[in-house]
Every structure is written in C-alpha cells, then in structure tokens.
Nucleic acid binder design. Structure first.
Lengths: 313, 313
DNA sequence: TTCGATTTATGCGTTGGACGCATCATGGCG
DNA sequence: CGCCATGATGCGTCCAACGCATAAATCGAA
C-alpha cells in the first residue's frame, strides 16, 4: 500500500537564483562572472540552465548586456528574499543560542536607507521573532550611539567605531548631478576647483564633510558654498533648475535618470570617482543576528544594475 | 577599483532541504529513499552532505531510524516554507497571466485542517497578493459548492466531483483509539463485527459514512452505535475514559500519543487498514494558483513522521 | 565602409560530485 | 544466541559543470 505522497521538487535551484541576481546586478555575464567567481562562459550556461528550469526566458540578450524580461523581474523580486532567508536559517542553525531578539541599527548616511529598509522588512518577514529598530536620529553620532549602548549594529562609511567587529561589505560612488545646460556640464568630468563658483547641494547630515573635502582637495580646504537640503527631491529639482550641483550616491541618482527627458547630467570630478567603502559593525553580543542581517542586506542588494556597471570603467 | 560586493552564497541547498524533510517524514533513510526516488546509500550520503553544509548534526542516528536534533527541528520548521515558496515562484513564472487572486477552498474532512491551514498561512506569507478563504461550512457539500460557484478548490477523499481537474496527492489512515483497558484493546487489531457492541465516537460531519461502512463491512450494513462529537478532544477523552472507540486520522491521533502516559491504544480492524486517498480538485480558472497551493500543501506535509512510518507495515 | 571593442553563445577536454550496487558494522528483539 | 532491521562506506560509473578558446553578432568611431 504505497503512499502516493511526494515532496515538491522545484526545478529552480539556489544556484539559479544567485546567477539571476548576479547577472541583473552586473548587467553583463562577464561582470556577473566576477561576482560569482566564475568565467563568462560558465555564467552564460548557468543562466541558460536557470531559464530552462524556470521554463521561461528571463533576460533579453542585447549587444550591450542583458535586460530582464517580465518573468525575470518577477524572479528578481523574489530571489533576494529566498536567498536571504536561506542564509538566515543557516546562521540560526550554527548558533542555536538565541541572542537578543532586538537589533537597533543605523546607517551613517541616509542614502542607503531605500536599500536597507527593504532588507529589514525581508528579514523580519523571514523571522518574525526578530524586531529591528532603525535609529535615524543617531545617523551622525554612530560611535556615541554604540558607546552609550543605544545601538547594536550600523552600516558606516569611512572609519568605523573602534573596538567592534567590522566587516567590509561594498562600495558606492558619490556623483554630482547638474542641469544639462549647467556651465560645468559640458563634459562628464569637472575640475573640483571650479566647484567654488557654484552652489553645492548636499544632504542635511554633514557626517562626512571631512572625508568629502579630503577626497576632493587633499589638504587644501577651499571655501565651498554648500546648501543643505533635507529632501532629495529638492536637491535634484534645484539642480535641474540650474541652482547648483547636487551630490548624491549613485543608488539615489539612478532613480532620477529613469525618465527619458530628465534634463540632468551626471558629473564626476577630474580627480577620480568619489568611492566610499561601506562597513558593517555590530556588538559581538548580537551572535547570529549580525550575519543574518548582513546577508539579507547583501542579498537585497542595490536597487538597479547601474550600481555595478557604473563602476566598471 | 574592484567592488568588494558579493552575493551571499548559502551552503545549504534545495537538495538539502528536500533530503531533510524526506528523512524526517519517512523516519528512516530507506523509506526516505522511496520519497526521493533514490537509494538508501544516496540518501545517507546526501544527509551527511546536508549536515556538512549546515555545520551541525541534524539527526540522531538510532538503530530504529533517525530523530531530529534541536538544530534539525529548526531546519524542519523552515524548510517547508522555503520549498513551497520556491515552487510557488516557479509556477508564477510559468503562467504570468494573473488569475483570480482569491481562492475559496474547503476540505471534505476536517481532520486535514491542522495541516492545511499551515500551508495556507505559508502561501499567503510568500505571496501577499493571494487571499485564501476557507469555507468549512461546505465541508459536506463540496460538489454542490463547486456547482454553485462558491468554491475554487478542495481537498477531498474518495470520489471527487466530476468534470474538474483532479490530482491524487497522498493517503492517510483512519485508526481507532480506545482506552488501554478497553475490552477490544487486548490486541493491535479487532474484529469489525465486535464494533456493534460498543460506542463509536466519530466526528460530527458524516460525509464519508458510506465509504466507511463499505470499507469495514462490504455490503453488510450492521447497525453501529455512533456518537457524533464536534470536538476532537471530547472524542479522545471519552475514549480514554472507556466510553467507546474514537475513529480519527493518524495525523490527529499522533498528537495525543505524545505524552508518555496517555493511556490510549491505537487499534486497526482485522480486515486491514482504513486508508483514504486524498485528491485535489480545482476549477481550471485558477491557473497557476492551483499548483502553488498544492505544492505548498505537499511541502508543509503532515505534522509528524508517524504519518509515513505507520504505513510501512 | 572598415576596424576594433564590446557583447553572448558554443565546441571541447577535464574533473569532481552524485549515483547505484554491494557490503559492512551496529543495535534491538525474540 | 541468531535474526532482522537500521545507517555507513568502498568502489566503479557517469553526467553535469567548469575553464579555455573561439565563433557570431552588434555598436561606435575612424
């Protein structure tokens, strides 16, 4: 009397999810190969295998990369949750000692939040026993927040608080956005010294002014006309209206370049791209919660593939 | 300026999840091999690989099967959700035409609900756009419910409504529970004819009386003293107190055999086990929603491994 | 147009992992 | 004690996935 019961056997695999995510983020199979520690040919074949498993074409092959199809976008929506949940389970297995079930987290720059909050929602959905609290009021006082015991984890750029486990995660690039007709927008690059002639539209939090000035000018400290704006849309609109150069993370800028006639131009300083290194720091008491948060953030990834392809040159 | 960014690479794999689930449900590697369409040796090695990936021992090996460790139980909690979600995504990819986002579902026997509801919650969590409504008031009117357009899907035993896509899923066994000191409880089996001497404690819904009588007595129709009870606990408690034999699905009974001194004995008729075949029927308009619900139910599976091992003899 | 620099796709040889078969070691039970 | 179940393992086979090298296609600039 054999049972007919069977276990569902998904044809999609973890490998497929990783390949699809990597190809989307990198934009090309060759770049994805670096992410996956494979060769271009392996990625091409792995992607074909993923599409065979899915039963649908997931990417349109163009001569300048791969663009997700409708089905591909569906899968790209779901893959981070799956991948992150699996990592989360894995870490939970390796340290069954339940640490604190609350994480108070902050980022040293608000421009990561569109990305960070998605990861947090996903982690809370995967493990309802975890409660994550964002403490944006500590954005520019991360070190003090840790010392006062008001923080458990943070995503920071530049030099992280000392004495805490630290992990380098990724980089982003700060770019300048100007109106297409702006005097500096005649080229893709501009001389930082010319910046003194125009308004600089910057986010309200000044955490990284030191880093920013040193990157652009070294020891010289020219006087810039900085206008602080608490709203990203205000920065971009002022820039579009010709009132100055907005400085924003590539993650944020991509959103405003979607519309066909955005009237904006992205500029980089002639001294080289302003790349920031992001680290993850956390109190050791977090136990397995720290890697679970980290992996979910990495799985969620930046919103668009421009994140990666912009760095390839 | 290479990005440090990386994709999380879980060491656990879909394969691992399936093996762990199968081993738990089957109770032994040999039985799990049947579920997985493998051999015992392959399952043994695959389980060892899963434990290597997890970094923890997941099962205690005894000479009469495998018992999950604490870590194993954690993984067993999460695996169905992962597996079912993956299947769900897969079906969604294959039919991007969004069907109705509501499923009205019922089961022809309430004893499947502890299992069914868990699958429903998991499916709703995986796809918040789906709303699943359970219609227990149609439990004994499944066919009429379909004809009246009040149902989209149903899990039924025996003969399903005609004219609808039907799919055989699994079997369960109805067993009889009596007090350890009951006159019939001297052996593991009892003569069905002896049943006329005692009270039969049955669920309130009488959907399957015909099937039940035919299985036990063929064409003969002896008069039974049936006491209908709407509450499972009442059935079991009356049985424990010696007031008759409760007839329940193995899925339900297992729960009451957990405590060490339950004072109960499970009996089967001498004419053979009362196995019921379960089918899944649904309106074709459901599209991809039907296989998604089905797979999540199969992934969620019965609560305990007794479900399977009880059928091996 | 022509050439070069991209891109993805593919033929080929190699290798490691997963499988089945057969066997071994262990522990409960009569 | 002997029997029967269990899981583990040695061995030979085979396929899937990899890297290397190369082809085919497309775009942009000379």
């Amino acid at each position: 009397m054999a049972r007919i019961e069977s276990l569902p056997a998904p044809s999609l695999d973890v490998r497929d999810l990783r390949v699809v995510l990597a190809v989307h983020r990198a934009g090309t199979t060759a770049a994805a190969a670096k992410l996956l520690h494979l060769t271009q040919s392996a990625v091409s074949r792995a992607l074909a295998a993923a599409e065979a498993h899915a039963g649908v074409e997931l990417f349109e092959r163009t001569t300048r990369g791969l663009e997700p199809t409708a089905a591909g976008r569906v899968l790209l929506d779901e893959a981070p949750q799956m991948l992150g949940s699996l990592c989360s389970i894995e870490h939970r297995l390796k340290s069954p000692l339940a640490g604190p079930r609350r994480i108070r987290v902050v980022a040293s720059c608000s421009m990561i939040y569109p990305w960070l909050t998605r990861a947090i929602v996903r982690l809370e959905r995967a493990s309802p026993d975890i409660r994550i609290e964002i403490r944006p009021e500590l954005t520019d006082r991360v070190t003090a927040g840790f010392e006062a015991g008001k923080l458990d984890a943070a995503f920071v750029t530049g030099r992280p608080p000392k004495g805490l486990p630290r992990e380098q995660l990724f980089e982003d690039e700060l770019v300048f956005v100007a109106a297409a007709g702006h005097p500096l927008a005649v080229d893709d690059t501009f001389d930082p010294d010319a910046l003194t002639e125009f308004d600089l539209l910057a986010p309200a939090v000044r955490t990284e002014d030191d880093w920013f000035m040193r990157q652009l000018y070294g020891r010289r400290r020219p006087r810039l006309r900085v206008r602080r704006l608490p709203i990203t849309e205000a920065m971009v609109e002022l820039a579009r209206a010709g009132f100055g150069l907005a400085v924003l993370s590539e993650w944020i800028v991509d959103r405003y370049l979607q519309s066909p006639d955005h009237g904006l131009r992205v500029l980089r300083p002639t001294t080289g791209p302003l790349c920031r290194e992001w680290s993850f720091v956390h109190r050791p008491e977090l136990g397995d919660l720290a890697p679970r948060l980290r992996d979910m953030v990495l799985a969620s990834g930046p919103p668009t593939r421009e994140h990666f392809s912009a760095s390839s040159h």
